[in-house]
């Protein structure tokens, strides 16, 4: 069975800083594979091991994907190979564009049984690339999938809705987006990291024109700070608690 985990290179949000004028600085932010994409990689590895199949990674995006450090990091987390379509022109893809390029790339991979996505990307978090990819491919598509087990030609999944769990039989191939709690992604060992350097990275290119952007970004600014009283007591705990208790009682 061939399982494809889709991942996105995103700037590490922990190192993005906001200036007083609310603009963002990416100077210290390195590109990393998205936090939630790690769930897709982990699930792909686990299902490939169960079925004696292969787990391959797929990503489309800008030049951040050219980084050998990032590629090795992706491969060290359990994938057998990594396929990328990377071009400067693809650094700000919206979900429809990403889905269209992923569809193109999947067509070049020579078949797949299951495509897995994370809950959402770390930067945009529209939570739609998997949904749109499944629709473009015309295959069964589900989001918020918490558990997957695969049998011959089909999977049975548990999907979390707001107050119930749906158990759904899904004919393969299919595209599933996972919950962020569906598994605990492995932390690569030194051995995994060394082995990653020897795994194949396949550079693909788009075989058709990429659709035009559906969205035009006007501004990206840190939210305006709520004005707060900033009444912080640092000192005698007893006195601080008494003050806080009377504050709470007065609310």
């Amino acid at each position: 069975m061939r399982i494809v985990a889709c991942v996105k290179a995103c700037p590490d949000t922990q190192d993005i800083t906001a200036a007083p004028d609310r603009t963002l600085s990416f100077e210290r932010a390195q590109f990393k594979v998205g936090t939630y994409d790690l769930n897709a990689i982990e699930a792909a590895r686990a299902l490939a091991d169960e079925t004696g199949g292969e787990a391959i990674g797929l990503s489309v995006g800008g030049s951040a994907l050219a980084s050998s450090k990032l590629r090795k990091d992706v491969l060290s987390r359990g994938l057998d190979a990594f396929n990328v379509i990377c071009d400067d022109a693809y650094s700000e893809l919206d979900s429809y564009q990403s889905a269209a390029l992923l569809q193109d790339a999947l067509g070049q991979l020579g078949g797949y049984d299951l495509v897995l996505c994370g809950a959402g990307s770390s930067d945009v978090y529209a939570q739609q690339v998997g949904n749109q990819l499944g629709a473009l491919l015309g295959v069964p598509t589900l989001n918020n999938v918490h558990k997957v087990s695969v049998g011959s030609g089909k999977a049975v999944v548990e999907r979390l809705l707001e107050s119930v769990v749906q158990v759904i039989e899904v004919p393969l191939p299919a595209v599933l987006s996972l919950t962020s709690a569906s598994n605990i992604p492995r932390i690569p060992s030194m051995k995994d990291i060394l082995a990653a350097g020897k795994k194949p990275v396949n550079q693909l290119s788009a075989s058709a024109a990429v659709p035009q952007a559906r969205v035009e970004v006007k501004s990206v600014l840190a939210p305006e700070q709520q004005s707060r009283q900033l009444d912080v007591y640092d000192g005698d705990v007893g006195a601080a608690v008494a003050k806080l208790a009377s504050y709470l009682k007065a609310l």
Binding site: S95, A126, N143, L160
Partner: peptide, 22 residues
């Protein structure tokens, strides 16, 4: 923004050539 509506938003938008935003 519930789970089923979100999936429908994505699959309907794919057919209409749109990128859904939150």
């Amino acid at each position: 923004a519930d789970v089923r509506s979100r999936l429908l938003a994505g699959t309907v938008a794919a057919r209409l050539g749109a990128s859904p935003r939150n």
